[in-house]
Amino acid sequence: MNLFRLFGDLSHLASIFILLHKIRTTRSCRGISFKTQALYVAVFVSRYLDILWEWVSLYNFVMKVFFIASSCFILYLMKMKYRPTHDPSIDTFRVEFLVGPCALLALIFNYKFTFTEVLWSLSIFLESLAILPQLFMLQRTGEAETITTHYLAALGAYRALYIPNWIYRYFSEGVVDPIAVTAGLVQTALYADFFYVYFTTVIQGQKFELPA
């Protein structure tokens, strides 16, 4: 464990709490893509189910349980408790165009051609693109609540911080995970435009608005 990874994980943790806080205080899941949240459930369940047969550390175990549980809880909030506040007509990204190619990639690029390893690869690829429905929705509405942008910033920072972690691990341990690194670079690149607008507006105290 190094500081980059620790802060990356803490940022990921923070993003979940910011999202829960947003839903609770505004009593609404307006501006949040259900499709993206559903994809995260798929990502965490397919990747973290290894807690059933693999022990890494207490830290690793607790985090995995937390991410599975919290993502399912958010889905419950969106689908049941705050259902009327979710507008499916603006959450129109075609998820099948994303799951299909990811499944194909997972079948080709994996560390072992077994069910669990392909599932692990799939979760890595899917995570890198899972934010697309959310960003697509943002693009459509052209603006976002400040708290939602903080959520997205924390979520984007998580994988971005993993990049220096991988560089650090390359030099300190001599180990590289090409699948995770490639997907992580793609994932971070997808946030580039969002981060640009976030830093030039929200951080300066202005409202998040995309140029027309």
């Binding site: 692990w120 590289v176 995970d177």
Partner: peptide, 10 residues
């Protein structure tokens, strides 16, 4: 480098 999965990461 060794090409290996970083399964200890989240």
């Amino acid at each position: 480098p060794t090409w290996a999965p970083a399964k200890d990461e989240l």
